[in-house]
Design a binder for these strands. Structure first.
Lengths: 334, 334
DNA sequence: TTAGCCGATGTAACCGGTTTCAGTAACCGG
DNA sequence: CCGGTTACTGAAACCGGTTACATCGGCTAA
């Protein structure tokens, strides 16, 4: 059994209140007494129980982060940016992946019981559950998801970049365009799809984009879409994919089939993951770490400074043109 | 203020012990009473405080995982595999990245105070600190790090794959070989380096490999190594890199310089991250998720079943030959 | 009828800290 | 020499649960 505050008090010949004061570095303890306590604590190798503290102080000093998956580089980067800031603010970080979990809602609720606040990425939890948690005092920041009520949110800009991307493709001579991704699967995908569609309309194109929905945003899905298109011979001028992994899978399949990219077909992704650079994939870069870091800061404000007016951050993105959509194949050193 | 067990007890007209029994689903409560309690709990929207429970039960129901960084795909995958199993075992997961943190040891110690056990990846914590934590009852599983005392460990096989890799390169006609990575930076790198060296010796090569150390295993480091070699014109037959990111950086720089890979120089990595496939990089695949999952299971055994005999798992790896080291460039669909 | 047992429930002591409030001794100025 | 501060320290109440043990009513068997 580890020593408790009472063991230290006995050993030092003082009361537990005094030990507590010394350990918390509060004022009003005579130096001689402080020394006695510190000596006793050192002898017993005493460390205050975090649990006892938390219960007494009625706080967890911990934040949670809920994400669908960590397998793609996207969420990993967000989590990383989040952890870095949270650690700086001296809070522990609990993680929860909802991927393929049927009891996600329950798990999130359980996690909320162990945290002062949490960050929720994407559509991992229902709106109702978010509001319910918020109403019970859990501080919440939403990421990659439109604001709900007066809950804070952090998002990357999607519509403007969708427009830039569309402009770029039209400038490259693209006339028919096929969007790959399920707008119902995540708010980001929905914005990207509607962004592309409205950009096309506003830019005066007479074509409206096609939509191919996929079950999940994976390389396998992308490859399957490519295979289907190849089988029927029905290739558009450009595939605009909802994320890089789909685009990479699609691109790989096309290349295996000997299709000339970007000559015959162009392909674009979204996120700018590391592999995109090596595959020469045109994409939209998101400030993933910044997103995580911003979420951490917003959450801290909510918890520590008890801010009450909601904030909604929109972080800028950047179009990255590479060989998969450009005749003037730019080289990229480093 | 959220309702407590005493509120529910009052509302239901029973004692807190009965409420506790109902909430814990223990036996020996009459159905009528149970119903009264459940009704009261529902009316008050009562959820037992996890903190109170933890203190009373003297357990955290949480595990920690310490890793240097999450930016590379390697650790992210390990963490993911870990989280999946931990969640299945109904334990929360705390994460801590030590990257660039000077007070890493303190942070780990603080985290240990909030967990029943923790998984430590790589050389993030000193041996002394590990032993100290273990001696105070924290259950520990080491990953990607040689066993310390009787602390459990999970590692990927390095030496045999180093040998396969070396054999492959020799078969491809490589005579001079340069290893890129700092053996002192991590146990894995050390094993890979010594594996390559001893394989070369045993395979009867008259060459001993060169060693180029880098500060960190990043794309930038790899690019710098390539640039330096290009500047002096001193290129080996093959660069064997300690991980994929270094290899990718190096490969990219060589290609920009117009060097023929694998014709003039071969390049290999380690880990088989996603980008490696797109870059055609020969590498050693590690079962990253399995590593995480195995660690989670070992830890659970330590905590729940109180296993005392140490276990050391060694997971198999697989050589993946791609175009960066093979004349017979194999295509890879999917 | 009554001793003995059993199932359902309550009482109270924990778990390991923080914090309020009261008490005590030393020190102050008058 | 004395009342009033002031600076430390300790006793005890709390935080919100779990659980060992006591209690009590009803039932069975002698």
């Amino acid at each position: 059994m580890l020593p408790t505050i009472r063991d230290v008090a006995r050993q030092a010949g003082v009361s537990i209140a005094t030990v507590s004061r010394v350990m918390r570095e509060s004022e009003g303890v005579r130096d001689a007494t402080r020394l006695r306590v510190l000596t006793a604590a050192a002898e017993l190798e005493y460390t205050p129980s975090e649990l006892g503290r938390q219960l007494a102080e009625r706080r967890h000093a911990a934040n949670g982060i809920v994400f669908p998956d960590l397998s793609g580089p996207y969420y990993a980067e967000v989590v990383l940016g989040y952890e870095a800031v949270a650690a700086e603010l001296r809070r522990s970080v609990l993680i929860l992946s909802t991927h393929g979990r049927s009891d996600a809602e329950t798990a999130v609720r359980a996690m909320a019981g162990r945290c002062d606040g949490l960050v929720i990425l994407g559509r991992t939890v229902s709106d109702a559950a978010v509001l319910h948690l918020a109403s019970r005092g859990t501080k919440i920041v939403l990421v990659a998801r439109p604001p709900i009520g007066s809950v804070d949110s952090v998002n990357a800009e999607n519509r403007a970049s969708a427009r830039s991307l569309t402009e770029h493709l039209l400038a490259e001579g693209v006339r028919s365009l096929r969007f790959v991704g399920d707008p119902d699967s995540s708010p980001d995908v929905a914005e990207r799809w509607s962004g592309v569609r409205s950009a096309l309309r506003h830019l005066g194109s007479d074509h409206s984009p096609e939509l191919v929905t996929v079950d999940e945003l994976s390389e396998a899905s992308g490859a399957a879409v490519a295979a289907a298109a190849l089988a029927t011979g029905d290739l558009p001028d450009a595939f605009v994919c909802a994320n890089d992994e789909v685009a990479l899978g699609l691109l790989g399949r096309l290349k295996v089939a000997g299709v000339d990219v970007p000559g015959d077909v162009m392909v674009t992704g979204w996120d700018d993951v590391m592999a995109a650079r090596y595959a020469g994939l045109t994409t939209v870069r998101q400030p993933m770490r910044d997103i995580g870091a911003t979420a951490a800061r917003l959450l801290d404000e909510l918890i520590v400074h008890e801010r009450t007016d909601p904030r909604h951050e929109l972080l800028p993105t950047e179009l990255v043109i590479r060989s998969s959509s450009s005749s003037a194949t730019p080289k990229e050193p480093k």
